[in-house]
Design a binder for these strands. Structure first.
Length: 196
DNA sequence: TGAACGATTTCCT
DNA sequence: GGAAATCGTTCAA
């Protein structure tokens, strides 16, 4: 299977294959790489929890584009979250990158996250992951397959994968489209939305 | 034009 | 367990 084919499917189908994949950030500061341990799927106009549910807007435009690009959005007035766009051009599936294990560049990641943050927590949680990798607004729409500042490649498939409801969503709170590596210490805690 | 809300994190009790 | 921080997007009027 080619790199492009890898991501050319519905979010919920592609999401489990992203576990173990390695996301690499290269800046003039250095390189940080994480092996993904937790992801969530959002599947376009039919998914009430998706940013694309109400159709295309300036914010979610990248979701409607071709697969293999990064959709970055600003959350709670202070955090950045990153998704891998999946599905063919014109559809709006995406997979939120919720957590990962830092496999390269621990020092730089800790410099970005804070000196008191332990290894397992460096990229635990979607906003922590983007912070460890220095992902921000400027990366919205970037191609992850061209070996640029950010890239993703398949990794070793984990031995065990768990499935459950997505974290913090108020709509469709029981849809089990969250996937994580069973028992992994770098996976974030589950919290149900108070509104759900 | 305004108000509510959010795919969160961190700190406090 | 609970609340604050903080602002772009969305929805109502």
């Amino acid at each position: 299977m080619s790199w492009a084919d890898w991501l050319n499917g519905r979010g919920p189908d592609v999401a489990p294959s992203l576990l173990g994949a390695v996301l690499t950030s290269r800046t003039d500061q250095g390189r940080v790489a994480v092996a993904l341990t937790e992801v969530e799927a959002y599947d376009g106009p039919d998914d009430p929890a998706s940013h694309a549910w109400r159709g295309p807007t300036p914010r979610n435009a990248v979701m409607f584009g071709p697969p293999g690009r990064l959709y970055v959005y600003f959350s709670y007035g202070m955090h950045w979250c990153a998704n891998v766009v999946t599905g063919p051009d014109g559809t709006a599936s995406a997979v939120l990158l919720r957590a990962g294990r830092v496999v390269h560049g621990h020092g730089l990641a800790r410099q970005r996250r804070g000196p008191r943050v332990g290894d397992p927590a460096l990229a635990r949680g979607p906003a922590c992951l983007t912070r460890a990798l220095a992902i921000g607004r400027e990366h919205d729409g970037i191609d992850l397959g061209s070996g640029g500042e950010l890239s993703i490649e398949p990794g070793a498939r984990p031995l065990g994968v768990s499935v459950g409801p997505r974290v913090g969503v108020s709509r469709a709170p029981d849809v089990a489209w969250r996937f994580w590596v069973t028992g992994d210490e770098t996976v974030s805690a589950y919290r149900r939305s108070p509104r759900a």
